[in-house]
Simulated scan of single mutants.
Amino acid sequence: MSLDMSLAETRLQRLTAHEALQRLEHERASRLTQLRAIDEAEAEAEEQVMAAQKGTIQRILTEVEAAVARVQDGSYGTCQGCAKPIPVERLEILPYTRFCVPCQRNAA
C-alpha cells in the first residue's frame, strides 16, 4: 500500500458521520437561503434565469438529502462508480458528492 493511499484512508477516517452531517446541514441551509433570495428577487429578474437557478439549487438539495441517507446507511464516502473511498478533501468541498473525481468525469 502506498503512503498516499494510507494518508487518504487516515484522513477519510477523520471525517466522522457527525462531521459529514454538519457539512450537509450547512449545504442544505445555504441552498435554502439561496432559494428564498431567488423567490424574493424573482419579480425583478428575468424569469428564465431564475428558473434555471432554482432548478440547480433544487437538484443540489436532492443530492444533499441522498447524501444524508448514505450517512445513515453507512455508504457515505464510498464512490458509487468504483466503490473506493472518496478522498476527504473532495467530501470537504462537495459533501454531497457520490463519485470520486475519475468516476465523476466518466459519469458526465
Score class of each variant (00 low, 15 high):
52 A>L: 14
58 Q>R: 12
39 D>Y: 09
56 T>K: 14
21 L>W: 10
79 C>S: 08
57 I>W: 02
76 Y>Q: 09
5 M>Q: 15
29 A>L: 07
27 E>V: 02
66 A>L: 09
105 R>W: 11
37 A>D: 14
63 E>C: 00
86 I>L: 06
103 C>T: 06
101 V>H: 03
45 A>N: 12
13 Q>R: 05
80 Q>D: 15
44 E>G: 10
38 I>H: 03
32 L>S: 12
80 Q>I: 08
21 L>E: 14
71 V>E: 00
98 R>P: 01
22 Q>I: 05
81 G>M: 11
98 R>T: 02
17 A>Q: 13
42 E>D: 06
41 A>E: 12
106 N>L: 15
60 I>T: 12
33 T>P: 00
107 A>V: 10
62 T>I: 09
86 I>E: 08
44 E>I: 01
53 Q>K: 10
94 L>G: 01
97 T>Q: 05
33 T>W: 07
72 Q>C: 04
23 R>T: 07
24 L>I: 03
106 N>Y: 15
58 Q>M: 07
96 Y>V: 00
69 A>I: 12
12 L>V: 11
82 C>Q: 05
11 R>L: 11
37 A>K: 10
97 T>Y: 03
85 P>W: 01
75 S>K: 02
77 G>R: 01
61 L>I: 01
66 A>F: 00
72 Q>L: 06
74 G>I: 14
36 R>V: 03
97 T>E: 07
62 T>F: 07
12 L>N: 15
103 C>S: 03
107 A>K: 15
61 L>D: 01
106 N>G: 14
55 G>H: 13
5 M>P: 08
94 L>M: 06
33 T>H: 13
47 E>S: 07
73 D>P: 12
33 T>D: 13
22 Q>W: 04
85 P>R: 04
24 L>H: 03
29 A>P: 02
61 L>G: 02
2 S>E: 11
54 K>C: 07
95 P>F: 01
24 L>K: 01
26 H>F: 09
79 C>E: 04
9 E>M: 09
